[in-house]
Simulated assay, not measured.
Amino acid sequence: MAKLTNNYNDVDQVPQKLTNTGVNSDIRLKKLVSSWNEKSFKFALTGSLDNEFCFKKLKPNHIKEFHKFIDEILSKRLTISQVDKLFLRTKGKVIEKEQIFGKERDILHYGKNNSSFRIHGYLNDDGYFVICKIDPNHKVHKC
């Protein structure tokens, strides 16, 4: 019969932990993901936007597009899941890793239909979509 447990006598023989993700953060993430169907989509600005994709680069028609985008989400009180279904990028990489404020983030790209207007950001631990880039002409990752 095969032995199902290992007895490690030497510290060097103990398998190394492969990630630094603890049980508490796993539980918190599962709760956050499971609540996306109920949790309202909210925007946040927590720092400077990318210099090439910030408010000072927007023209009046871009500001109107940005307002229309925000108004459509907030006036309908859409949940995170609903926003993903309606606006999340479907071509190419849906999520990509990027260093934002010294931390690796999963960057999402939102836009609607054939409009060139895009918003780039990530969902923080509180469930807010933190905007990193406002891309009115779809210059980033155009498929």
Rank of each mutant, 00 (worst) to 15 (best):
110 Y>G: 04
38 E>M: 11
20 N>R: 10
66 F>S: 09
72 E>N: 15
116 S>K: 11
30 K>Y: 11
104 E>N: 09
19 T>E: 07
30 K>N: 15
47 G>L: 01
131 I>S: 04
4 L>N: 10
26 D>C: 13
77 R>L: 11
42 K>A: 14
29 L>E: 15
32 L>V: 07
75 S>L: 11
127 G>T: 00
65 E>W: 05
57 K>N: 06
73 I>L: 08
143 C>E: 12
45 L>Q: 07
138 H>F: 05
15 P>D: 06
128 Y>M: 06
53 F>E: 01
56 K>I: 01
29 L>A: 13
39 K>H: 09
111 G>N: 06
51 N>C: 01
87 F>Y: 15
11 V>M: 09
55 F>H: 01
117 F>C: 04
9 N>L: 12
61 N>F: 10
111 G>D: 01
93 K>C: 06
77 R>T: 13
42 K>W: 02
75 S>G: 05
45 L>T: 08
94 V>Q: 15
104 E>M: 11
49 L>H: 02
73 I>F: 07
36 W>C: 15
102 G>W: 04
30 K>H: 14
73 I>E: 07
27 I>Y: 10
127 G>I: 03
120 H>V: 04
65 E>D: 14
120 H>E: 00
11 V>F: 10
65 E>I: 07
16 Q>S: 11
130 V>E: 01
134 I>A: 02
19 T>S: 09
77 R>C: 13
105 R>I: 03
14 V>Y: 02
31 K>R: 14
37 N>C: 13
99 Q>W: 01
28 R>T: 11
91 K>A: 08
12 D>F: 08
104 E>H: 02
22 G>T: 13
12 D>E: 12
118 R>V: 04
130 V>P: 02
64 K>E: 14
10 D>E: 12
58 L>Q: 05
139 K>L: 15
32 L>Q: 13
12 D>W: 00
12 D>M: 09
142 K>H: 12
60 P>G: 06
67 H>L: 14
24 N>L: 10
60 P>C: 06
113 N>L: 09
114 N>W: 02
10 D>V: 08
115 S>V: 03
91 K>C: 06
17 K>F: 06
11 V>Q: 11
132 C>P: 00
72 E>L: 08
24 N>G: 03
87 F>S: 04
135 D>F: 00
29 L>P: 00
5 T>P: 00
90 T>N: 12
54 C>W: 03
41 F>G: 03
130 V>Y: 00
20 N>T: 12
52 E>H: 11
139 K>E: 15
105 R>E: 02
83 V>D: 04
141 H>A: 09
97 K>Q: 13
52 E>Y: 10
100 I>G: 05
16 Q>L: 10
15 P>Q: 03
123 L>H: 03
134 I>P: 02
140 V>S: 04
129 F>Y: 01
27 I>T: 04
104 E>F: 04
78 L>A: 05
139 K>D: 15
70 I>S: 08
89 R>G: 00
119 I>A: 08
101 F>E: 14
36 W>R: 14
139 K>A: 14
134 I>Y: 03
94 V>H: 09
12 D>V: 09
30 K>S: 15
26 D>N: 13
